[in-house]
C-alpha cells in the first residue's frame, strides 16, 4: 500500500488553472522528485497535498485515508511535513523557539518519542551554536537547515521539500544533500521539488517531469541520465 496517493488533482488560484490532473504515489521510504522549469506547478502540487491550496478536483489519500479537504493543521498532524521554498522562518523567534513551536508527537507514539532538539542539532551542528539567534538574521544556508530541522520536530513520515538548494553556495548544497540522504536512509519519505538536476539524480528513486501543470515523463535517475533528449526538452532553459 502506498503511503501517499495523489489521484488526478486539478488546482486553480481563482480563475487561473495551474494543475491539470496530477497523479503520483509515494511508497514508504521513497524519495520522489518533481522537476521542471519555473512555474510548471511543483509548488502548487505540494500546496495541494498540504491543503494550503486544496484541489478543485481529484483526491489526495494518505495512509488509505482521504485528506483532500482536511484543514492544513490536521494534515500536518497526520505526519506530513512542509518545507516551503521561501523557507518561512519566524523572523522574530529564535532558532530554538522556531524548533520548539513545531514539536508534535509522532503518529502512534507518546510525547517523549521522536525527534528532540538535541537530535536535530546532531544532524545540523551549525544550528546548535546559533540557538538563541533570531530567525530573521540567519544566512540562507542556516535558514534552509532550520526549515528542515523545524519540520523534523513535527515527526513527519513524509517531507515535502520545495527547492531546498535554491540560492545556496555549492559547498552548502553538498552538505544539505548529504543530510537529506541521511534522512532518507533513516526511512523518511520525501517529495522533492528541485531545479538542480544533480541534486535530484543523487537523492531520488523516481522522477516526475512536469510541464504546464501535468506530468510529462516519469523515470528513475538512471533512465533520465540515459536520456539527454528528455533533459533538454523539459529541463534546460
Amino acid at each position: 500500500m502506498a503511503l501517499l496517493e495523489v489521484d488526478n488533482i486539478r488546482t486553480a488560484y481563482g480563475l487561473s488553472k495551474v494543475l491539470f490532473g496530477i497523479s503520483l504515489t509515494v511508497e514508504p521510504g521513497e524519495v520522489v522528485a518533481l522537476v521542471g522549469r519555473n512555474g510548471v506547478g511543483k509548488t502548487t502540487t505540494m500546496r495541494s497535498i498540504m491543503g494550503l491550496a486544496p484541489p478543485q478536483q481529484g483526491s489526495v489519500r494518505w495512509m488509505d485515508r482521504e485528506i483532500t479537504r482536511l484543514p492544513v493543521y490536521h494534515v500536518a498532524k497526520l505526519g506530513i511535513g512542509y518545507v516551503p521554498e521561501d523557507r518561512r522562518i519566524f523572523p522574530e523567534l529564535t532558532v530554538w523557539e522556531n524548533l520548539d513551536i513545531a514539536r508534535l508527537p509522532p503518529i502512534g507514539g507518546a510525547k517523549g518519542d521522536g525527534w528532540s532538539e538535541e537530535q536535530v542539532f546532531e544532524l545540523f551542528p551549525d544550528l546548535k551554536d546559533i540557538q538563541s539567534r533570531k530567525g530573521g538574521v540567519l544566512s540562507g544556508g542556516q535558514q534552509q537547515m532550520l526549515t528542515i530541522a523545524r519540520s523534523l520536530m513535527g515527526n513527519p513520515k513524509l517531507l515535502l521539500l520545495d527547492e531546498p538548494s535554491e540560492g545556496l553556495a555549492p559547498i552548502i548544497v553538498e552538505t544539505l544533500r548529504d543530510r537529506i540522504h541521511l534522512l532518507k536512509t533513516g526511512g523518511l519519505s520525501i517529495i522533492l521539488a528541485e531545479q538542480n538536476l544533480e541534486f535530484v539524480l543523487y537523492l531520488s528513486d523516481r522522477i516526475h517531469i512536469l510541464e504546464k501543470g501535468a506530468i510529462q515523463y516519469t523515470g528513475t535517475p538512471a533512465d533520465l541520465r540515459a536520456n539527454p533528449d528528455i533533459q533538454s526538452k523539459y529541463l534546460t532553459l
Binding site: 494550503l52 492544513v72 516551503p84 518561512r88 523567534l93 523557539e97 513551536i101 508534535l104
Partner: peptide
C-alpha cells in the same frame, strides 16, 4: 511563542500542525 509566531506567519504555523 505560538502566539508570537501567529503574529508573524499564520499559514506557516498551521502547516506545522498548529490549529
Amino acid at each position: 511563542r505560538i502566539i508570537r509566531a501567529a503574529t508573524q506567519d499564520r499559514e506557516m504555523l498551521s502547516a506545522l500542525g498548529m490549529n
